[in-house]
């Protein structure tokens, strides 16, 4: 199902996501010494044979830095997506199903976290703790728990009021199986896919934003797509080559992740119609 344009968008965004994931996985295996890469003779070159995407103001290869720059957000993004979806799904299921103090505690926690404005809270954490990107991603993951939990909770409550859960309890299934398999896996999967890719995209956005702003985030000479773009400030109009590829990479990657998550979820929904 879905039109031709949607199919193209699905495979196109899927290819970009696959590429980013592949680079993210391979990159740590390749050694890179930022100091050794400096070569002022080669600075500000355009794309060419020796340097496919050109070089920056210190003569470092942009393609290499672009690849190594994925490390700044790849694992943190996965971690945040994992924290947000798993904890969100679990807490949402508890909030939708449990009764008594357990539910009160979970709902209270979710509401408390939900009141925090995400970006402002992250910047606040940065100014107080000056943390690593991993910690920032962890915080971002936690900040997304309530929005995921709320959707899951509504789903569980709706099924509860339709006697769905009760009918399955009556049939002899354990509540763990009903919540984890029947509801979360079989019914809420598209929703979780969408949320996970969204959180990943958000971490990429936060990481590059902080690294661009410079005080927090990834510091030179370690490469990040954010601090690569930040070179515009020193360069003025001298050359666009050092920052145009990372800027495009940020935009394209975030867009591809959001689009792919959305379309994958849609396919998952349609597959069972």
């Amino acid at each position: 199902m879905g039109g031709r344009a949607e199919r193209i968008a699905f495979w196109g965004s899927g290819a970009i996501v696959a590429l980013v994931i592949a680079i993210g996985l391979v990159s740590p295996l390749i050694g890179y010494d930022p100091a050794a890469a400096v070569d002022y003779e080669q600075k500000l070159l355009g794309p060419g044979a020796g340097h496919w995407l050109g070089t920056d103001a210190q003569g470092r290869d942009v393609a290499m830095r672009l690849m190594k720059g994925t490390e700044a957000f790849f694992l943190p993004g996965l971690m945040a997506a994992g924290i947000a979806t798993m904890a969100g799904a679990l807490l949402g299921a508890i909030a939708g199903y449990a009764e008594g103090w357990g539910r009160t505690l979970v709902v209270g926690f979710l509401q408390l976290v939900d009141t925090l404005p995400r970006l402002i809270f992250i910047i606040l954490v940065c100014t107080i703790l000056n943390p690593s990107i991993t910690l920032i991603a962890g915080v971002a993951g936690v900040l997304f728990i309530p929005s995921i939990a709320t959707v899951i909770r509504r789903k569980v409550e709706a099924l509860g009021s339709e006697d769905y859960i009760l009918a399955h309890v009556a049939h002899g299934f354990s509540t763990t199986r009903i919540l984890l398999y029947h509801i979360l896996w079989l019914q809420a999967r598209p929703l979780l896919i969408r949320q996970a890719t969204y959180v990943f995209g958000y971490v990429l956005f936060v990481e590059t934003a902080l690294s661009y702003l410079g005080d927090y985030g990834v510091q030179e000479p370690t490469p990040s797509w954010g601090n690569m773009v930040a070179q515009t400030r020193e360069l003025g109009g001298a050359s666009a080559w050092p920052w145009v590829f990372p800027a495009v990479a940020i935009a394209v990657t975030i867009a591809a992740f959001l689009a792919f998550g959305n379309l994958l979820a849609r396919r998952d929904e349609e597959a069972i119609r």
């Binding site: 339709e162 006697d163 769905y164 009760l166 009918a167 019914q187 069972i272």
Partner: peptide, 11 residues
């Protein structure tokens, strides 16, 4: 169950 959908998994 009275609600016939309750017994069945939609997926």
């Amino acid at each position: 169950f009275q609600n016939q959908r309750a017994n069945l998994h939609p997926k």
